[in-house]
Design a protein around this nucleic acid. Structure first.
Lengths: 131, 131, 131, 131
DNA sequence: GTGGTCTAGACCACC
DNA sequence: GTGGTCTAGACCACC
């Protein structure tokens, strides 16, 4: 997991977002144990309280379950996975479309730009990997 | 101008983004006078210091210039308009594509979702306007 | 507000319960400003973080609203007051009835004991006030 | 025996309370053998230390006595049964009345609510048992 | 070892 | 002044 310490987005929210992502795309599966608070704090070089706050909010969201003394586990409910993924995708796309429209782009222009930049990004990645 | 006070994005950055947007799509044209700091602060119900910081940074970016005793004006250089618009669009699209890829969506899936949500958003807007 | 530092009930939960109570019985009315985090922390002689945690959870519960830089206010929605009161009363009574039943008391015995102890408590209070 | 792992009430206190209850209503009679610490720990899926602490405190309270190599037994003194029951009932009722009063309920309102919820709970139980 | 609560205190954004 | 985030570190309950 990589954090950006130079953004205004709080660290605990970045942590939540990354777990959501990993749950949404199946890197983390229902029932999987996630790192202990202290372990993750050590890995990310942040304070244990910051990780705990992230875990606590994920618990409230129903994404994980905590067993005292045993650790924290991805919620068993499969439905939550799909839901999380859909919520993330929809809000991402909606915010994007809204922002593009506020800059005067309509459907065609948006699609064109997405295609253009997508291909550009792909090309760069290939370049980085020396393909 | 609408601000979101509950996000972690600093108010002054939200103000800058909105001016950039208005300049990029021509709502504000080169040479246009923008509101005085005090006036805008009153409108937005925001502290004058916050507006001042936004204006100062926009000056550094070369987006506006302040004339002592006369007010603050959108920069005359026409090139800056296109440049601002392009920068905003490119970073918006790139961030979006990157985020969608991190959620496991490739070109086709992205295009489809954008189309889907765009149409949905259009429909809702029409509904709200009673069309 | 009085806290019990010798119980296992976390301080932040005790704080939440007391605000709920004051909102439920109208000591605090919709829109009322509650003490600043620092002020309450000073009054209760607890850490500001502990108060903040209580306030944060009350915000999630929709009991209060926070305006950055201005303070924290009792939620405007009148419905939440009634709801809070009902939830508190119902869970209190239900837990009590459940516990009494688990000790072998049925309706009549419960009512009798409540009456008995209620009168006893009243008498003692009068005694304390020298009536 | 059912434990609640998500409450702030320590497990060992929950265990004590349950034994008290069983003694108070005669499920456990003077002289009865209670489960070995290891057995109960296994049943409750709880650490043996936790059960040990509960047993130790019950011994201090005079509720049980441990005979080396034979096990732990409910105290022979009959008086302790009545006493335990009375203590539990009185503190339960007193705490309840106190809490209801702090929420603005006086005798009549309390009695009414108890009656209401008691009947409601009875009805639900009957429903669950398909009566 | 694992999570839960709390303290002391810093720094920031915004009023 | 007011809330928001974060760190460092303590102590507790439970595994």
């Amino acid at each position: 997991m990589e954090l950006n310490f130079n953004t205004s987005i709080p660290i605990y929210l970045q942590i939540i977002r990354e777990f959501k992502r990993q749950i949404a795309i199946g890197i983390l599966k229902p029932g999987d144990k996630i790192p202990s608070q202290r372990e993750l704090a050590g890995d990310l070089k942040v304070n244990a309280n910051t990780v705990q706050r992230a875990y606590r909010e994920m618990e409230i969201l129903g994404l994980v379950e905590t067993l005292r003394g045993q650790g924290t586990f991805v919620c068993q409910t499969q439905a939550i996975v799909e839901e999380t993924r859909n919520e993330m995708l929809t809000s991402l796309v909606d915010d994007f479309v809204q922002a593009m429209k506020s800059l005067g782009c309509e459907e065609e222009a948006i699609m064109e730009l997405v295609k253009l930049r997508y291909d550009e990004i792909q090309k760069n990645h290939r370049g980085e990997r020396g393909e």
